[in-house]
Each structure stands twice: as structure tokens, then as C-alpha cells.
Design a protein around this nucleic acid. Sequence first.
RNA 1: GCCGAUGUGGCGAAAUUGGUAUACGCACAGCACUCAAAAUGCUGCGGGAAACCAUGUGGGUUCGAGUCCCACCAUCGGCACCA
Length: 814
Amino acid sequence: MNYSKEIDKKWQKKWKEEGIYKYSHNSSKPKFYTMEMFPYPSGASLHLGHWFNFSPADSFARYKHMSGYNVFHPMGFDAFGLPAENYAIKTGISPKESTEKNIETMKRQLEEMGVNYDWDYSLQTCKPDYYKWTQWIFTKLYEGGLAYKKNSLVNWCSGCKTVLANEQVIDGECERCGTPVERKKMEQWFFKTTAYAEELLTGLDKLEDWPDLTKKIQTNWIGKSEGAEIVFKSVNNNFEITAFTTRLDTVSGVSYVVIAPENDLVEKITTNEQMDEVKKYVEATSRLTDIERMAEGKEKTGVFTGAYVINPVNNETVPVWIADYVLDNYGTGCVMAVPAHDERDYEFASKYNLPIREVIVSEDGESKPLPFVEYGKLANSGKYNGLKSKEAIRIIASDLEKIGQGRLTVNYKLKDWSISRQRYWGAPIPIINCPKCGAVAVPEKDLPVLLPDNVEFKPDGVSPLKKSKEFINCKCPKCGEPAEREAETLDTFVCSSWYQLRYPNPKDTEKAFDKDLINKMCPVDVYVGGKEHASMHLIYSRFMTKALRDLGYLKFDEPFKKLIHQGLILGPDGNKMSKSKGNTVSPDIYIDKYGSDVFRMYLMFGFDFTKGGPWSDKGVDSMSKYFERIEKLVERVQNAKNDSEKSLSQRDKQLLRVKNQTIKAMGNDIDKFKFNTAIARSMELLNEINDYLKEDVNEKVLKDTVEDYLRLLSPMAPHFTEELWSSLGHNSSIYNEEWPKIKESELSGGTKEIPVQINGKLKFVVSVDADLPADKILEEIKANDDVKKLYDEYDIKKEIYVPGKIYNLVAVRK
RNA sequence: GCCGAUGUGGCGAAAUUGGUAUACGCACAGCACUCAAAAUGCUGCGGGAAACCAUGUGGGUUCGAGUCCCACCAUCGGCACCA
């Protein structure tokens, strides 16, 4: 075979010299913005996952380019983050240095893949010319009331020595290092994602081209629940407790009220007699990690506060308890406990001998074993007796509203996004804390707040930036008095929540993005990336888009119109690839042996793009053989004479028909990221062409077909087809060829087979002229000898003819 | 526990959305070329002698079901003391 890695190199060089992938916003063609989630620049060479993600996405972009779009397909680097910092701690090489080096390596390797990126439209989140604008966005959100600081309970990872967002806590462990997460109270910056909870949820309905699974995950994550608030006043009328409940119908069964140990009310309401015990309990729970606290089967614990409140619905006095089965960060952190109709309350009440009163029975009035948690009919509920649960909720809520002690409301699991990180390698939060003026945003003219180079950043829980006096000490931009800078850095997800807005104009020193341009370019038409970001990056980006829209910068609601998740290539053993399991596979040996295109094609053909699967290289050889067969065919065509005068034979027409079918099918497939079937179609076309070569060949038909065939393959195998294209005497790149147009006239003709069935079971097929109108086809079927025989053998009860498709007889054998 | 996805040959997988199940490959077998092998090319390839039977299992709707409906089994994923 002629194709090899050397051919890749030759064309990569030429493409670069000729600048064929240079992008310009000035074009008469319609825009098409497609991008992949940008990678983190890690030290090692590109792994299989990168290839599986980026090379098909590149093929897609190439296909769109050939289909007449002005395709914008940028690539950048998500360059801030912990790995570089941890690497630095280990080796002493600064994050800046190692990151820059890694980016250079990665860029080179991406080019070896044969991608059509224009590096003039690229970005690196760790560069001041980028993070200046991340900081600017922060200040805009701050001014718009969407960023705020509060003392709050946060997820603390003692491994990474930093705070984590809720989204970064997986099963109670740090998403990055697996350390059990602790809870800590700290002053933290937040973005007000909750302000958009409802829109983030309802907006999902409009995202028709997003995977259902991803929308489902976001729906769960947002966790909307409709219920009611109810206010319990204390017996002495010196405090109030507001609880959220979805089961206001059970309110007459409240036998106590519980609040979370961390809740601010605890201190306020606890009586002196109970204070010691309560303090002990609160301290004990605070020592537990989330995992310990929520361990399955863990017995519920709690303690009485000494306080009593009044149930506004029946005026009963009930005790107030503290228990760690109540979460402070959901609802109000306070719960009305109805042991008869809630499993948790039942367990707790049983343990502490609190009353259990049945107030819901089944709809037919039957008493059910407790705890009975389904909807039913009210009992033991005074004037509400006999009401069905759902109407009771409405009526009780409206009664409470009249006395100002409750109302229907909604609650979301979604929390505000915690964005402060006590680490070094990130964008400094652009805030100056002035003793007089408070937190003041750094004015645009003073941005970026540069990340200092020489800082000791060994993690010890104190933000490394605090240790740099030069960094910390500054003047308040408002009053000019001495002040201190915020010492924390932004969660890297802030950097990636807006990067698609920067790509179209990455070198702009005046603004983050050009309003007019970005409103034309966005939303991104197709976004490709892993589904592990469903409840992180993809929520943050959506939030940021909506926030910037409401601040007047954007005119669209969603960042990404269509979303595709690539699957995961697993190790040969079916497990996730990891160095510790020793099941990693490097793409390099395949690239060296076969060249980039064979490998790209193999990845696309051997796996469903959205599914992935366990790695196997069984078919790589056969892909290489496919390339050889193509080379042979092209060699044959190089000597093709031009016999255009010849009229088309039936065989010629059949070839053209198959070609047109292939064009149609491959286009549809690539649009849906179904590269496996697209390549299968191309193989069918090759088989057809080789079959055609056995008979009388019309050289012009052959050459046209083969050239179209190369065009069809070129998005998937850019180097290989470029080489063959030039061997056919073409001087311009195949990349700038048009994707072949379907000729309807050539699509028709030939014969087609109509299945003939008895009772839905296939008997045989009848071949008919494909161009015949449906009723003529039916005539031909009926005239067919085999069909006539069926009439003799069977009693025909009914005849079903789906025009031009199938002929079925409902019949009994005579 | 709640929500969701998937299940088709020895294997990776197709099936225009209710209309010829197993496309395209891999593996395998036979033949040709060769002294021979490799490479290449051709042929076959779900089961069954056949009628027929086969898309995780059992029902249902339909002239017709891999596709729609109900129940179940298995695997994977998301959420999970969310009041």
C-alpha cells in the first residue's frame, strides 16, 4: 500500500503552507458553528479518547464545509486547573511552564490527526488575554446582583485542599481525587444559578436536539418540587420556623418539627436546659463526612431543643428537634415531621417515642399500615376530613395564606454555584475588599488582575495568593484607601462557561466578545463532548448564557443548539481505561503503522460514535485492506479514457443509481454522527464499482463515479483522499470540492423487489420496474405466475397492497 | 427507593421509524493462483432434512411487530435521608 504516515505529513505541510483551513467571518455562505469540548492540556500524548472524540467531529466539520457552509470549527485549551498545580508541587515546574509546553505538544498532535482547525481562532483560559474577560464577566455578574459572597456551609475536599461545587461531589466524594467530602463553614463567592432554576428547567423542552438522557439528568439535578411553606410560631411567640413540605395534606399529623444541625435557628431556639446536649450533638455531626452521615442503614439520631411551636392548622403544641437526617441546604432546612406518613419521620418517632397519628387513609376510606406514604383521603384532620390529598393541599394552603402562615411554593434542589477555590492555578477573583467600601469589583481598566508568578502554592487550606503581599495589598478603586485583594481563584468551570463566545474574536483586546458578531454566530450549531458534563459544564454554560442575556449582552437563550455525546472507548477488558488497571491503549502504534486516516476510519467504522465500547483492534487490518482496494481502483481510473459520447447502458445507470443512493445515505448518516453506517455505505459503493468493472465499462461514468466516491470519503480520510485526488491530476484540494449533489433523475430506474406475503410471512419477491406507478406495479404482481399459483393454492380472504412496497394476502390454504 | 437507557448471528453491529430481520465488516470454511505458504480474488456462512423456527422472557394490538402496548428478567447509567 502507498498510503502511510509519510503521506499524512506531506499533506499536513502543504495544507499549512496554503492555508486551506483559514477561516473568515466574511462569507456569502451560511455560518455553521461546531465545536468540541476543549481538552485539558495534559502532559502525555493524545489518548484514544481524544482520537475518538476529535477525529469524527473533524470529519463532521469537513462534511459541513463541503456541503456549502462557512464552517467555524475552533479548538482551544481548558488550561487552568488542579493537575498542573499538583504536577508543579511534585516536580517544581511551574504550572505556567508545564501547561504551555503541553499545549504545544497537543497542538502538534492534533495536527497529526489531520484536523481543520484554524489556530488563529483559538484560546487558552490561563492566558491573561482570556482570563481578563472571565474576570470582566464576573464583575458584570457582581454588578448585576448575580454574584455574591456569603458565609456558608461548603463542600471541603481535604485532599485538594479546596472547596468544591455540589456538582463536583460524586457520591459524597471529590470528583477529582476521591477524598470523602467534609462540610465547612466559609466565606464563599457564589453565582446565583438558582435565579434561573425555572428557566434552566423549562428551557430543556426547547432543546430538541439534545440527548434525552442529558435533559433528564439536568431535570433531576434542578430537582423541582411543588409543595408549600408553612410557618410554625413558637409558644412564646419569640421565633418562627418555616418548613417546606410537599404533603401539606398531612399537616394534622405533625408530631414534632425538626431542623438541621447546621441551621442558624438552632442557637436561637435552644433552651438553656438543652443547650449542652444540643451543642454536643451539633459538634458530633459536624465531624462526620457526608458519606458517614448519609450511610445507608445509618440509624437516625437527634436531640430535643427544649422549644415548642404551634401547628397553625390545629393549634397543637409540638416539640422542636434537631436531627441530621434533615439537610440544611434543601428547602428551609426545617421539616414538619409526620411519622404516620413519612418513612424517615416514622423511623425517628419510633426511636424517640414521639406520637404517631394517622391522618391519611386510602381513597376508599381504609386504614393502611403505617407509614403510609401515598396520597389518599384525610382523616383525624378536623374540618378537612374526607378531602382527597391533592385538593386538601390546595385548600389548607389557601387557609394558611389567609392567616399569613403559609402558601403554595416550589423548591429546587439546584443550589447556587460555589465558585471560590483556595488554589493557585486559576483566574483571581477580581474583587478588592475595602474596610470602608466593602467588596468592590475591580474596574475594567484595571483588568486583568494578573496571577502572580512567584507564589508558594503548596496547598494548606489557605489560599496561596494570600501569601503574596504584593498581590494582596492594593488601593480601593472607590475611595483610594489601602485595601486587600480577594485571594481566591475562580472555579475553572467559570472559565469554560463562556468560551464559545470568545472563539469568534479571540484576539480582541477591547471586549470579551463582539455583540453583533456573537449574536450572529451563536448559538453554537453542534457541540460535541462527554456526557459526564451533563450536570456541570453544561448547566453552567446555560446559566451563563442566560445571565449575560439578561445583562444585555446576548440575544439568545441557549449556548448550544445541538448536543452530541461521544461514547467511551473502554479497555480491552471492558473496564474504563486507567493506568492503575493497566488496560490503557495508546493510539500511537497504530498511527505509526497505518497512518492517521486508517485509524480515524477504523474508529468511526468499528464503534458507534455515541456508544463507544471495549477496545479491540481486530478490524484495523481490514480497514487498511479497504484502503488498498481503493488505491487499486484509483490506479485503474488514472488510465481512464474519455468516452463521453457513449450512451448510457442499463449497467451504467445502475451504477449511477447506487452512487446517488450512497450520496444520500452518507450525508444523512454523517449529519447524525452515524459514521459507522456512512462508511459501510461507502464500502457498498466500492463493491458495486468493482462489480461494474467486470463488464463493459463506460470510462467517463467510471471516472465520475470514482471521483465522487473520493469526495464522499474525504471528510473521513482527508490525507488519503487528498493523495488520490491529486494522483488523478487535480491541483486543488479535495477539501474545497463540493459534497456531491444527488441527481434525482439518476436515483430512479432499475428494478425493485416487491415482497409477496401470505399472512404476513414472506413467500417470494416479484421484481418490477422501479419507475412504474403503484397501480401498474400491482398489475404486474397479479400477472406474476408465482402469484397466480398462490390464488390456486389458497382461499384469499383479504388482499393488502401497500403501494409500491409490499403485497400481503390474508389467506387459508385450500 | 425514584428516574432513565439498553438487550438482534461466533464477534463489532445494520434495519429508510409498523412493511423482504441479520446491511457493512470481522472471524470461520471451501475453491482459484502457488512447488508451497503469505498476499490477493471468488464462493458460502442464524438454526433446521423440510414444513417451519429465530431480534432477553411471557402475553397483547395489527393483514403484518426488532420497532407499538402490558408484565417480567438481566446489564448499564443518573439521582438519592430532597421532606
